[in-house]
């Protein structure tokens, strides 16, 4: 058998080419997930596992269909709102703080080590403090969510602002650009991909912040619903709520990724 024969034989199994490559990148993980789901469904049925312990995927989907409009959506809305607001606030705050730190050497020397130190604290442990400070309303959840989601934005943005090619900075000096011009024309556009990588992490962190806040105190929201359902031993509902949360997380991340593409096309970074 020649090498060409082998290649021709392989072709139908693993298609090559650009389009086929993209297709494969989508199909393979989906197929892998499906295999796990089918195994899960089969195992739960064959071994007769109690649905309180682990409901089969079909049951979770049934719960989702049944309760999406009457219950899940109602609880999803406050969670989504608070996550989006917290994300927006932490993005603006994070970029602003990074800009401040990169522009002032003294501020940077004073604050940056502290920012890094804060990054290392298991911030979730501080959640109850926010309730003590700001009460049981949404402001404490928002504040906590901002608190945990803005660090990745600060650190990534700062890295982007500082990582500028020294030759470009020398060019700015040669062309007598002011600090502000250098920031606006060179540092900021250069930092755009970094800013977005920080913001993508922030989407996840913002959701985590809101959910943790809801676990501690709330009368609505998916975190509240999860806690409520677990008290009722409604495992399928818990997983259905988590499914909604995942879907939201994906869409949220996707929107930020689209915003990134648009911005980068505009600035071409």
């Amino acid at each position: 058998m020649t090498a060409i024969d082998t290649g021709a034989r392989k072709k139908p199994l693993l298609p090559t080419g650009v389009l086929a490559g993209t297709l494969r990148q989508i199909l393979l993980p989906v197929a892998a997930a499906l295999v796990v789901l089918v195994a899960w469904e089969t195992a739960v049925r064959v071994l007769d596992v109690s649905p309180v312990l682990l409901p089969p995927p079909s049951m979770i989907v049934a719960r989702l269909q049944e309760l999406f409009f009457p219950l899940l959506l109602k609880h999803a809305i406050p969670t989504i709102w608070e996550s989006v607001i917290a994300f927006a606030v932490s993005s603006v705050l994070g970029i602003a703080l990074a800009g401040l730190l990169s522009s002032s050497k003294i501020l940077r020397e004073a604050l940056y080590p502290n920012v890094v130190l804060f990054q290392l604290i298991p911030k979730i442990a501080l959640a109850p403090l926010f309730i003590v400070w700001l009460g049981i309303g949404s402001q404490s959840r928002l504040a906590f969510s901002v608190f945990i989601s803005f660090f990745p934005v600060v650190i990534a943005t700062l890295a982007g602002l500082d990582n500028v090619d020294r030759d470009l900075l020398r060019l700015c000096r040669a062309l007598r650009a002011s600090e502000w011009q250098t920031f606006r024309e060179v540092r900021l556009p250069h930092a755009i991909p970094y800013v977005f990588s920080g913001m993508k992490i922030a989407t996840t962190f913002a959701i985590i912040g809101v959910i943790v806040g809801e676990f501690i105190t709330s009368q609505a929201g998916l975190g509240y619903l999860i806690l409520f359902a677990s008290a009722q031993a409604e495992t399928a509902l818990i997983l259905a709520a988590i499914l909604v949360l995942c879907a939201f997380g994906l869409v949220f991340y996707g929107l930020v990724a689209i915003a990134e593409t648009v911005t980068r096309n505009r600035f071409g970074a």
């Binding site: 090619d165 030759d167 020398r170 060019l171 060179v186 755009i192």
Partner: peptide, 12 residues
Amino acid sequence: YVFQDATLLPWK
């Protein structure tokens, strides 16, 4: 000024 590397702004 012209430097060793072109040092063009990649986004422009």
